[in-house]
Design a protein around this nucleic acid. Sequence first.
DNA 1: CGTCTATTTGAATGTACTCAAAAGCGGTGG
DNA 2: CCACCGCTTTTGAGTACATTCAAATAGACG
Lengths: 200, 200
Amino acid sequence: MVTYDSILKNIQKHLVLDQEEIDFFTSLIRWRRVPKKSLLLKEGQLCRHLNYVHSGALRAYCMDKKGKEGTIMFALADWWITDMYCFLNGKRAMMQIEVLEDSVIFQISKENWDRLLSDQPKFEKLFRILMQNAYTREQLRAIERLSLSAEERYESFLAKYPVIASTVTQKQIASYLGITPEFLSVIRRMAGGKRGRSRD
Amino acid sequence: MVTYDSILKNIQKHLVLDQEEIDFFTSLIRWRRVPKKSLLLKEGQLCRHLNYVHSGALRAYCMDKKGKEGTIMFALADWWITDMYCFLNGKRAMMQIEVLEDSVIFQISKENWDRLLSDQPKFEKLFRILMQNAYTREQLRAIERLSLSAEERYESFLAKYPVIASTVTQKQIASYLGITPEFLSVIRRMAGGKRGRSRD
DNA sequence: CGTCTATTTGAATGTACTCAAAAGCGGTGG
DNA sequence: CCACCGCTTTTGAGTACATTCAAATAGACG
């Protein structure tokens, strides 16, 4: 029913694998169905797994002391997601990972991840590339946060992640952009006004 | 005069190298003295090198359309710095890297970096770890930006990077935190006031 | 010593937030 | 199938946090 095609294709964008390596890799992962609204990771838990999203939608977020949510990332099909810092360092999670739509994920445990990297160092390259992509993405986000207005960040988000934008709520987008949902609503009204007027 | 000890020690925190690997690695890097106030990388240039700071201080920043600077990162002794996205993808730099103090750096060109990774895949692990550290650092920065006030972000910066804080100007710290130097000055006055009053 | 930039200070302004309430929308059970 | 419930989105008024601009002061460097 659920095959490893998606995750293997994702990996084989970066590595050439023989059958033995494929078998070893697949022996280390397990697939899980996770229902909408469930929490894949709760704050304070140990984060034991790295997750690949086969289908569905997840969101990682954290709470500030006033209870306001800050969305750290979204993960749709073909994305990897975990609380990376806690996964790597065996610390308790600072974030929660919430299931936005019924999803199917592949999980690799920290133990198996360590085994994968020590037994098959070839996979170092895969994770080097995934980490460098994640790094450059976060750095670009920091740059946009420093140099763009809330409205420009919203436009940039729509342009970069149109599929996410049409999957998640505005409240969630607002918490990713670092603004309130009320203010995002104002931004959308203003932007709509601009476009509307330009057609006169 | 300048030895490879510092960079080799940095690498050997993550990898065990034999003499041949050390020789190969050092054959791929060159050291450079760079004077204060010079630009190691200019916006629009191709970013051809990954830099390791042996001594001194560098800063990466970008300009928004109003000419306001946003500091992306600082790099003191024993840090790695480049415009990673452009280094990896051969794009023109979006950021500038400025020399804050007379510095000595080790550079590895993109060509040599590619060669290093293909000839000595062992180094994949090194860069996987450097990338994952950079990623988790940027992610934490995003979290703080989402959930902390300007004053709290400043306190966190002081706690995390005391050496940087005492090396660079307040203007530069402000541009890293995403606030104006005037407002940072107000924050410092208020914080000083708090500490002062608490001694009454 | 003079120049240049960083830092401080204050007033006026603007951007984004809080709070409250109404409207919209989706899901669920009767 | 419809009515209700809960959550999201919109709207507006008042407010707070942070910016801009201008000017004075302090520091660093040649």
